[in-house]
Simulated scan of single mutants.
Amino acid sequence: MEGISIIKWGNRYIDSYSYGAEVVIDKKETKFASPMMPVGAKIKTWNSIGNYSKNRISPLLPLLAANQYYEIGLYLEEAEQNHLQATIEFYDKFNNKIGMEYFENLKLVFKYPEEAASYKISLINQRHDVIVFYFLLIMNSSFKEKYELLINKKIGILELASHKIDESNEKLEIVINYLLRETSVIPLSNDKENRLCLFVNRGEDDFLKFLMNVLKYMKNGTKEVFISQGQNFEFLSRPYQLLPNILSSLFPSHNILSNIQSQESGQNDREIRKYVYIAQQMQQRISDVSN
């Protein structure tokens, strides 16, 4: 796996604790509640192999390379009453368990064993009221040298920004990905020094927050911005399709380039003007507060 994998709960119950459990799954998050379940019981397990011919289930976890270092994090809504543990188990080609590691604060850096043919990750109950689960994230540790990962769980936006993005960058590339599927595997490159990858987990309701997130990267020294479509971009709502037009109106002196095609129409023009006006008002408020 050369990149970043973002895995949701999954629309399946075979790998989840089900006795008296209440599970609500949607695109944004999954809510799980079974306060009476035993301590040490597995709430949810994600697998790297599946048996499609038997139960029509494909694996949610990506394949990993032997002897490579990876970082894993489970991202949930923080709640003092919830106490959870997580483990990763490794199996050889004969499905014999060859190792296991425990997460610390639901995060782990590990080396994938040379003998491993598959693995599984489990979220384990210690005590909980209601769990709000957002996603599980896996990335090659080498990318941490090039990229900084910022996660805003509440508005469903992940930012993966090159460490070298600063006010001295004249060019900026923005790649927009929509986390539509249960598993999203996004390839990354180590040779991009001015790339910002944005991962959107929600729709139109949070576009304005998404826009304000983008604006903070429009530094004074930036002269050229290229906006490109990432995975599943075509399924995002109209405001995301109009982002190049909105940025062109907000920054007329910048060269805004894009491979996103949007048709000219009166409705689009009105929507562009609406978001430009709101963004300008919000930027003015931020400026007034900081001064």
Rank of each mutant, 00 (worst) to 15 (best):
E2C: 05
E2A: 02
I4W: 05
I4C: 09
I7K: 01
K8G: 14
W9M: 06
W9Q: 10
D15M: 02
V24F: 15
I25Y: 10
I25K: 15
D26E: 10
K28Q: 03
F32H: 10
A33Y: 03
P35F: 01
M36N: 14
G40K: 09
K44D: 03
G50A: 13
Y52M: 02
L60E: 08
P62M: 02
L63C: 03
A65Y: 07
N67P: 04
Y75D: 13
E77S: 14
E78W: 05
N82G: 08
N82W: 10
H83E: 05
H83M: 01
A86N: 04
F90D: 02
Y91A: 01
Y91M: 11
Y91I: 11
F94G: 05
M100V: 15
E101G: 13
F103K: 05
P113F: 03
S118N: 06
S122E: 04
S122Q: 09
S122F: 05
Q126P: 02
R127T: 07
D129R: 04
V132C: 10
V132T: 11
Y134R: 01
Y134N: 07
I138W: 09
S141D: 11
K144Q: 15
Y147N: 03
E148T: 04
L150I: 12
N152E: 06
I157W: 01
L158G: 00
L158P: 01
E159R: 11
E159N: 12
S162N: 02
K164D: 08
D166W: 04
E167I: 02
N169P: 01
E170S: 13
L172F: 06
N177F: 09
L180F: 13
T183E: 13
I186E: 10
L188E: 03
R195F: 00
R195A: 12
F199V: 07
R202K: 12
E204T: 10
D206M: 07
F207Y: 14
L215A: 06
L215C: 15
L215R: 12
N220K: 15
T222S: 12
Q229Y: 00
G230P: 04
Q231K: 11
N232H: 14
E234Q: 08
E234D: 14
E234K: 14
F235T: 00
L243V: 14
P244T: 10
L247E: 12
S248E: 05
S249W: 00
L250C: 01
S253W: 00
N259E: 12
I260P: 11
G266N: 06
R270D: 09
Y275A: 13
V276W: 06
I278P: 00
A279D: 00
M282H: 03
R285W: 03
R285S: 14
S287E: 11
S290H: 11
